[in-house]
Design a binder for these strands. Sequence first.
DNA 1: AACCACTATGTTACCGATAACAGTTACTGT
DNA 2: ACAGTAACTGTTATCGGTAACATAGTGGTT
Lengths: 334, 334
Amino acid sequence: MSTRVTMRDVAQAVGVSPMTVSRALRDDPTVSEPTREKIRQTAQSMGYVYDTTARAFRTQKSGFVAVTLPSVNNANFAETFRALSNGLEAAGLQLLLGSSNYRVEKEEQLVRQLLARNPEALILTGGHHSQATRDLVRSAGMPIVEMWDLPDDPLGHVVGFSNANAMALIVDHLVQTGRRKLAFVGASKGADMRGAVRREAVIEAAQRHGLPPVKLMDAGPAPVSMRHGRAAIDHLGRDVGQFDALVCVSDPVAFGCLSAVQRMGLRVPDDLAITGFGHFEIAKVANPCITTVNVQAEHIGHEVVALLGAVFDNAADTPQRIDVGCTFVRGETS
Amino acid sequence: MSTRVTMRDVAQAVGVSPMTVSRALRDDPTVSEPTREKIRQTAQSMGYVYDTTARAFRTQKSGFVAVTLPSVNNANFAETFRALSNGLEAAGLQLLLGSSNYRVEKEEQLVRQLLARNPEALILTGGHHSQATRDLVRSAGMPIVEMWDLPDDPLGHVVGFSNANAMALIVDHLVQTGRRKLAFVGASKGADMRGAVRREAVIEAAQRHGLPPVKLMDAGPAPVSMRHGRAAIDHLGRDVGQFDALVCVSDPVAFGCLSAVQRMGLRVPDDLAITGFGHFEIAKVANPCITTVNVQAEHIGHEVVALLGAVFDNAADTPQRIDVGCTFVRGETS
DNA sequence: AACCACTATGTTACCGATAACAGTTACTGT
DNA sequence: ACAGTAACTGTTATCGGTAACATAGTGGTT
């Protein structure tokens, strides 16, 4: 009963060939206006729904662009995603989203799944991938963009910023304002590579400035957010007084720390400085507002869209490397 | 040069028919173990990537489940999305995400786009749709789930809770604790239907309790978040003293209000109560933590997954209506 | 009248996987 | 020894669009 209405059916009803229907529905100007209109109306009234799968199969163009994100539940990545989605829609492309939940072993499986859908480009968040993933992606023969990082050994195009430099900005600022006893609050060593880079950057910058060793506080496995920052400080208790600055892997974590510290009755920034990362909304609205780094999540999305537009136009694709930079934003917590 | 490796190529290399390759890669038990293994290895070494598009076309099963969200950049929806994604992955299904950005006119276009991909089910967030969307969806002949609402006139299955009841819980609580002069902080009248339902529920509950008219504070077009709540209060200034409770459309908005109110030197909850909605992370971590309603975003996702599992199993699909309920969570802001 | 240019439509084959059905062995039991 | 069965593999046709090419009609030009 519920056999799908196809172009053939519409064609028969109108009295033309399926090809004409195909052309009419794609607004091919070689179809005369009366015919096109009649076809449109008939299609509508018959409840015809265009079959993108069939087109994708025949033309070998899926209309998809695949994106991997470590997590959707992250305002920064969501912002980039939205920019990508809106930008690519204009080009008639649909985003196919895959989330690795910060698990490396999942990325390969995810990429395989996405590639099986024949996307016209693949956008990966981050620059760290398993060798299997690298091989898979390299042999896929489609434009690749890595974003949110500036990998040394990119797979294709890159749109990102240096997490290490960004973190160095923070540490430099703290040192300039007289802080010396730093603690870093972030996820456990493991899957979150961007977090790890930030951690190492803090350690290195501290060494560069001749500070005592940075205390590493483990807020649990990625993704870490407000409650993990808060729990980490609660767990530490009064010992937090040993430090004069908490350098956090992200703004939500920083806010969690801020909340915990305030509950203890400590004054921020007088007793303790706190810094975040990412310029999340919470950084601006928190009280006091949080010192952070603006990484322009939305702008990254726009740049990727622009880049892909250029790549789709001319086949000449020498891999681009776009550093969108980032800006230090001093708040009231430091 | 970059002609895709197909099953035919793998078959030729191994010396079997394409059909055997197809079976082997799908773990059909009728293929002998040695053959299967050889095929797997050859496929791997040839860089074969399974073509899901072709399978989707041939079998008329896309492996997609389409889902619309008003916004990805909302921790609650993101949570539901994650639960859906993880749950459906086990069934070999991939999510196809579309975001309407809270624009009604976009939903129809979005649904059309999604339906063209032949999804095996369609999950809509919310129960308010244009007539065109309703017609489109009804004639699509696939399982439909509306979630995050309990519409009176559902299109198919429903997994949600009553936004009106939830808001009434809040108002009842405020009245019980002696508050009478309420203001509601939410998005402008317009696209956000869930927000509108909450607003009307507050007005109605206030009337029921014999309170003076509820002041409606417009925080701008949806989506509204922390900064909009904060801006609304800043704009109001000292006049906020007229009220003894701010009922906010969501936790982020409530946090924005809390932040603004605290900056003014008012004490919460002594001078003013503030309530949120949704049990976002911020509600728990804020200082004081925010009174809210837990709507169990993740649980909604799980229920939808379970429901779809049942629907896919037996064709007998009498529309289900699952009320996941919600629970009042008293914080320190009331 | 013959020819051309141009517009509008039709024909054919095919994209890659797989359902449905048809073999081909190998091995069993009587 | 031979039918009967199980285990495995092969053949054919097809899903719904569309690229590439073919063809019919129309009007203008020399």
